[in-house]
Design a protein around this nucleic acid. Structure first.
Lengths: 111, 111
DNA sequence: CATTATGCTACAATATCCGTAGCGCGCCGC
DNA sequence: GCGGCGCGCTACGGATATTGTAGCATAATG
């Protein structure tokens, strides 16, 4: 495990120029599979392949891209056990963990 | 104001077949501009055009598509003052409103 | 009627995502 | 060694989503 990728081809997150950090964060989180990836890593680290499986076999291209973005943002890191949340990433997770309960109630409404 | 659109061409949200409501919710929120739109509506209703302006002049195609999705989900409604959050939408907003403060701290870290 | 603003749509160009296949590397068991 | 396996990661072409520009129909106002 642990080989480290490029992590070099970085591009500014859209909205980061606005000086409003929340915009950059919303843009980062508002990309396909980003929230889902954070969600799947909420309990324990996963290998990249296990993560793909957990995400309905999403294509490795996007998963890898999102993981790179999340690593650059400092929310995810690659350790011995695979990809896991950093302390900062765990904080982020806490902020939208109540979504779970909300989703349950929501699904019961429009059924 | 208030003309009402089709709201008929609906397609199941991806992940809704899994029986895990949170997946459907994550998929809905994990589309471009969705989080941003909810964010811009967090304080007061906006007309569709004001909303587009607030969202860095996003194209009306996506904004309109997202608004339709959010209306079908029951998070947004079109009233006299424009588009606004429903009571359910306000609940959803509350769950990720702490992101604001998190984003502030986050931006100070990687600077 | 002319103006302005609303919600919303058509269309082509572009960016993004997808699935498939495969690379190089390290780790075992033989 | 060396063959197989799983890892992180990438290339490539086709499918899909997003973008920007322009415009429609309607309603309210002057």
């Amino acid at each position: 495990m642990a080989k480290q990728a490029s992590l070099s081809t970085k591009r500014a997150v859209r909205g980061s120029r606005s000086g409003r950090p929340v915009m950059a964060l919303l843009d980062l989180l508002g990309r396909r599979w980003t929230l889902r990836i954070l969600w799947e890593l909420r309990e324990q680290p996963l290998t990249s392949r296990a993560l793909r499986t957990a995400c309905d076999d999403a294509s490795p291209t996007v998963v890898q891209a999102r993981l790179t973005e999340l690593r650059e943002a400092g929310f995810v890191e690659l350790g011995e056990a695979g990809y896991g949340l950093t302390p900062l990433g765990r904080e982020l997770k806490e902020t939208f963990l109540p979504l779970h309960r909300f989703a349950e109630r929501w699904s019961k409404m429009n059924s």
